[in-house]
Design a protein around this nucleic acid. Structure first.
Lengths: 208, 208
DNA sequence: CCCTCTATATATAATGG
DNA sequence: TCCATTATATATAGAGG
């Protein structure tokens, strides 16, 4: 191109390569800007500029939040597409795990019910109180851990899928699933199962 | 451009817009391919093609794994860059939470130790056995939940940060942190704290 | 809708400062 | 190393099939 014809292989000369890289990077970004402006489509470019250690990545659009929004949008589409094709998808994964939790919880409830029928009078009040205090602390730690993980889940899920507000409603018609559906799926199947199960109220069940 | 000069605004005519979009999209992808081939740089483009409901997103490179690798690479750089600037970063977030877990666990251990000094003889063997069975089930459920969450964590963390293998070692010199450092950070500060704390061995402590 | 054609605008390789 | 120039290759807007 330009004055000489270039074959589409790695440019062997380092200097030429670098020059070409800088020129073409600039043009690619400009084209990305033009495409998105002229046609109002979400367009995103990243280039790993090894040449420039300070920048590492140059992107269009330069704003990080916009890039993240694009990534989330891409991921949610890509993920759902994959789910529909893959034989072992996230739906399956979550519902298998959920079933296990449900089964185990049922076993626990059964045992707790059995336990409630026993007479606790033979325990001294002090022993019972102490024991329950220990249990409370124990439960507290477990709750903290669960909250700890849930908070991070939210954070991680946000990173992976993003906020529902991004998905513009105008594309909903053509989109079999959207980000909101997917978030609900996760929340229903997964966090839902946790929230439902984790406040055990062990002590009140024990005392009742 | 081309035969007529176009101002850089949304093309009002829908037909022209669509035509222009298709032409420019093709060129942009071609340019991305050329850039990466000629200069051997990681280049990634996504375009949300609202026009084509089946495709939704067109990308260069078309291979999904390569796109994911690019996203992971971008995210790890972007994230670390942000961490260094932001006053409340992930390091802080993780270490605050870790401290809370450590404190709570210490409290628990203290209470368990206190409890061990008490005499359990006044509990009937049957009561004790039943109670421990209930506790076992309880712990089992909690362990399942924790494993459940850990597995998903791994999944989510993989989505967010990706595999260390992607980061080519030739750039390590110029890169203050790399993906491996970041993964270690997470594992040390966060999963580490969990793994360390979650096998409570409640029953054995109780019996010992 | 999707192609082709063609005039014109851009991009860019090579060159020289 | 980076900017300017220039000859040439590409990209593309608009028109027509």
């Amino acid at each position: 191109m330009g004055r000489g014809i270039l074959s589409l292989k790695l440019i062997p000369n380092l200097k030429s390569r670098r020059t070409t890289f800088l020129k073409r990077k600039k043009s690619l970004m400009k084209k990305a800007y033009e495409l998105s402006t002229l046609c109002d489509v979400q367009t995103c470019v990243f280039i790993a500029s090894d040449c420039d250690p300070a920048a590492q990545f140059e992107t269009w659009p330069p704003n990080r939040d916009q890039i993240h929004a694009m990534i989330r949008s891409y991921k949610s589409h890509s993920f759902l597409k994959q789910s529909r094709n893959s034989s072992y998808d996230l739906n399956r994964f979550l519902s298998d795990r959920r079933n296990k939790i449900v089964t185990d919880t049922a076993k626990l409830r059964h045992n707790v019910d059995k336990f409630k029928d026993h007479n606790l009078d033979s325990l001294s009040e002090h022993q019972l109180k102490d024991f329950l205090a220990t249990l409370d602390t124990k439960i507290g730690v477990v709750d903290d851990m669960i909250q700890f993980m849930e908070a991070d889940y939210d954070y991680l899920i946000e990173e992976v899928i993003g906020t529902p507000s991004f998905c513009p409603s105008e594309t909903e018609e053509s989109c079999e699933y959207n980000v909101e559906d997917f978030q609900s799926l996760l929340e229903d199947e997964f966090l839902g199962a946790l929230v439902q199960n984790h406040p055990f109220n062990f002590d009140s069940e024990l005392i009742a």
